[in-house]
Computed example of a mutant assay.
Amino acid sequence: MKAAALALSLLAVPGCGSAGTRARHGQPDPSASAEVVGEVQLEAELHRLDLLEAEIYAPFRSAAPGHPVDRCNDGDSEVMSRMLAFGLIVGKQEKKAADRKYYALLQTGTPEELFPAIYLRRYYFEGLLECVRGLTGAGPRKAREEHHVSILTQSNFDAETSRGLVLVDFSTHWCAPCKLMAPELEKLARDHRGAIRVARLTADRHQELIERFDLTTFPTLVLLKDGNEVARLGKYRTYQELLKWIRDALPDQSSSWSGHPTQGGQVPAPDNE
Rank of each mutant, 00 (worst) to 15 (best):
P68K: 10
F86S: 04
H47S: 12
N73S: 08
Y103H: 15
V79I: 02
H47G: 07
P68S: 11
E94C: 03
D70P: 00
A64Y: 06
R82E: 08
L106Q: 13
P68T: 06
A54E: 11
E53T: 08
G66A: 10
C72F: 02
R61C: 02
L49E: 09
N73C: 07
G87S: 03
Q93A: 13
E55Q: 14
E94R: 12
M83D: 07
G75M: 07
A63S: 14
P68I: 08
R71D: 05
K96S: 11
Q93T: 15
D50Q: 15
L52Y: 03
L88G: 11
Q93F: 05
D76W: 04
E78D: 09
V79D: 01
K101W: 10
E94H: 09
R71P: 00
L106H: 09
A58I: 10
Y103L: 13
L105C: 08
H47A: 13
R48W: 09
L105M: 15
Y103S: 13
K95A: 10
H67E: 03
I89D: 07
A98G: 04
A64D: 14
A64L: 09
S62W: 04
P65H: 11
S77L: 09
E78K: 02
G87W: 01
L88E: 14
K101D: 12
A97N: 11
D76F: 01
R100I: 06
L105Q: 14
P65E: 13
R82L: 12
A58S: 13
G87Y: 02
A85R: 03
L49W: 05
A64Q: 14
E78P: 00
G87T: 05
L84S: 05
P65W: 09
E94D: 15
A63C: 12
L52V: 01
Q93N: 12
M80R: 09
V69E: 04
G66I: 11
R82A: 10
A64G: 06
H47P: 00
M80N: 02
R48M: 11
I56M: 05
Y103Q: 15
E55I: 07
D76R: 04
P59C: 11
L106W: 04
G75S: 10
D50R: 14
D70L: 04
A85Q: 03
C72V: 01
F60P: 02
A104D: 15
G91H: 12
D50T: 07
F86V: 06
D99S: 09
A54Q: 13
R100T: 10
L105E: 12
